[in-house]
């Protein structure tokens, strides 16, 4: 049900620019107004979301203990899987952000006859890594549509992406990789009945949307070629705040742009926020030094205490009369 809803939504989102591209005035909406609105929603929404998370109380250290904790000197401990220093946390976070370490540790339980067996399961990790890095490279490559002159690192990444010079226009490895990885991630949810049961529109839709963006991009590069100079004029115009609306650009370009706008506009309100969220995961970014350092809840109010000395002072006479032992005579 949620899958069909996502497919329907994607079809509508494709139909809007496809039909709209030929209506006068619509290119202005699709090429200038909607992108600006989407960028604004993305930047403001992202910052608001992070600030919201930053404000949530984290009174305790709740790191996941994915290895032996630091305790006595002669017990070997896991420096990065269970760090107890700031720099240990930095390494753990880097492993998480750049290499998806948690996913790498993914296991799968299976019934073999009467026995349950656990095995390492790296497919999700591999596909996730391939997808995210492809997306990053494609994102960086796209800077060339928004800036002039094109910085060296963009040309360099583009060169290595097309290193094998397959076909003409040269096939970018990330183009093939991202479709393969997205295909796997989609099939994984589709074919496993348990995962299908767990998947909502919030899971299907981003996958389908990114797949739609990748496919329209691939179509424009390799099959239905568009006037890229006009596309870049629109891009640089937008991001130098002197927008121009090129005429006669292929509707495919507007579909691509509209889907990208949808993606970045929904970004702050969706699971895609894990881009910022991963930095703020309390189970990952806190050093596990609960045994070494006393952590006082920072917003504890001053508790009114009545110490034993004070108690004794108050009741000294009575206690003395009752022959009770006293600290101070």
């Amino acid at each position: 049900m949620s899958l069909w809803f996502s497919i329907f939504l994607l079809i509508v989102l494709i139909a809007i620019p496809l039909i709209g591209a030929s209506i006068p005035g619509f290119p202005l909406l699709l090429g200038v107004i909607i992108p600006y609105a989407a960028i604004a929603i993305f930047l403001v929404g992202f910052v608001m979301r992070i600030i919201g998370w930053a404000k949530s109380p984290v009174p305790f250290r709740i790191p996941t203990t994915s290895g032996q904790e630091k305790s006595l000197d002669w017990i070997k401990y896991a420096k990065y899987d269970n760090p107890h220093t700031f720099w240990g946390v930095v390494v753990r976070m880097a492993l998480e952000i750049f290499f998806f370490r948690s996913l790498f540790r993914n296991t799968k339980a299976e019934l073999r006859g009467q026995k349950i067996v656990y095995g390492s399961n790296k497919y999700l990790w591999a596909a996730g890594l391939a997808f995210h890095y492809s997306f990053l490279v494609i994102f960086i490559r796209h800077f060339k549509y928004f800036v002039e002159p094109i910085p060296g690192f963009v040309s360099l990444i583009q060169f290595f992406d097309g290193f094998f010079q397959v076909g003409l226009p040269i096939l970018y490895l990330t183009d093939a990789l991202i479709v393969a990885a997205l295909g796997f991630l989609l099939l994984r949810r589709l074919l496993d009945s348990r995962l299908r049961h767990l998947s909502h529109a919030a899971d299907w839709f981003p996958l389908l949307l990114i797949l739609g963006i990748a496919s329209t991009g691939i179509l424009m590069r390799y099959f239905i070629k568009i006037d890229v100079v006009s596309a870049k004029e629109l891009g640089t115009g937008l991001l130098s705040f002197s927008p121009v609306v090129p005429i006669g650009v292929n509707p495919l370009f507007y579909i691509h742009l509209f889907l990208v706008c949808t993606l970045i506009a929904m970004f702050p309100f969706s699971k895609l926020m894990h881009l910022g969220g991963i930095f703020l995961s309390p189970t990952r970014n806190l050093a596990n030094n609960n045994r070494a350092v006393r952590h006082v809840n920072p917003w504890n109010y001053d508790v009114k205490v009545h110490t034993y000395e004070e108690y004794e002072d108050e009741f000294r006479d009575v206690m003395k009369a009752a022959d009770m032992p006293l600290d101070k005579e």
Partner: peptide, 24 residues
């Protein structure tokens, strides 16, 4: 972290602002 994020995300904007893009 937020400042780093914004600087990276708005890279084309400030890069164009510094370079003063002339239309093709």
């Amino acid at each position: 972290g937020l400042i780093v994020f914004l600087v990276i995300m708005t890279f084309p904007m400030w890069y164009n602002f510094i370079n003063g893009v002339v239309p093709f």
